[in-house]
Nucleic acid binder design. Sequence first.
DNA 1: CGAAAATAATGAGCTTACTCATTTTTCTAT
DNA 2: ATAGAAAAATGAGTAAGCTCATTATTTTCG
Lengths: 213, 213
Amino acid sequence: MAVAALSRREQNKHDKRARITAAARALFAHKGFAATTTQEIADAAGVAAGTIFTYARTKDDLLILVFHDEMLDVVERARTRALQQPRLRDQAIAFFNEIADYHERDLPLARALMRQLSYVESTDQRALVSQLMRRLTGHLAKLIDAAKATGEVAASRPLTVAARTLFAVYFLHLNGLLNGYLDRAQFERALTADFTLVLAGLAPARAARSTIR
Amino acid sequence: MAVAALSRREQNKHDKRARITAAARALFAHKGFAATTTQEIADAAGVAAGTIFTYARTKDDLLILVFHDEMLDVVERARTRALQQPRLRDQAIAFFNEIADYHERDLPLARALMRQLSYVESTDQRALVSQLMRRLTGHLAKLIDAAKATGEVAASRPLTVAARTLFAVYFLHLNGLLNGYLDRAQFERALTADFTLVLAGLAPARAARSTIR
DNA sequence: CGAAAATAATGAGCTTACTCATTTTTCTAT
DNA sequence: ATAGAAAAATGAGTAAGCTCATTATTTTCG
């Protein structure tokens, strides 16, 4: 189990972090993020109120802790779902729809998470978010790369730029969905239209070489 | 001026709102958003602490009030600056660089604003943000439309989709800039690369190369 | 005008995220 | 094993955003 390598102190910290994260997750799901107090989380985790803040600098930090692992799973599911589509555009749409499905299951929580992504406070937090982003755009890049084999995308096109741009489109529209500017149908229509435009820029033998860097 | 039509009550409300907004703006600029208390704003505006919350549901709401007008000006400046460039891609880059310049003058405030844009709470707030968005993407759409005349963009391409996609790219990278994922140089490189891709999707089928000098 | 209704302002008080001086636990070295 | 150092946990205290019952102002209408 490789646990023998952990000192007692490290073991305690690990356990306590797990208890706090589990308690926070359960309470957020049950009564919502805003309505959950840090005191309640501390009680449920069996620690003192102040201890919470040695594991998360702010209450918002807890969101990142709670969702990091869960999100990694969601991204994997999204990839699986994407691969069921033959064409790149539909793959990308399926990919983000899976993630949107996940967020729609608990809108207030998704909104809180979204806000947190827009206001990163600590280096730890930035590292966790970065890891998620890399995982996500990495999957997208792989899908785009595979589409080069089918001739759907020109071989010369840069993967990271394209993946990033698709993510940018998704990010904006997710914001719209979560903040009530778009309903789900509008979200999907916007995603489709914008992805079509972006992928047009990737297509072979159309836009000539306009020096993509 | 149509001021005669205002009742005493409406006049009072208008004045008070103006005082509160001005006080908030000055204090935010002087000591930062987080360090400014609502009590200080109330004192500076000459109203009671509770009165603030009849004009803004939350402290965050004040940000939207404060920045709405200011942002409209910034967008106009951005348009002027964009028009100094001959090519659409450079126009779009200049446009958003002007806005980024504005945000960089007060990063903490920009960060607070960004967070607020990701967590819209009231209908009023949504209306103000929507108006800003429409103004901004409207200008972009006009630039794209003008590029149709020069043959840089195919006449058949939809304006709103393209404008929206450019904004999405900007929005993501501004987030990166404000949250420390990107420095300004990386921000501009990312913007350039992604815009190039998006605009490749707008180019006419054949003559793309020849229209780019 | 004057009274009643409608709207706005007030500020003491509450809630809760977060701090920090103190205490407890764990590690290290002799 | 024990003392001393280092790290972690504690929880009472603090601060600040926000609420809401009360008071003040403005409008409406007989």
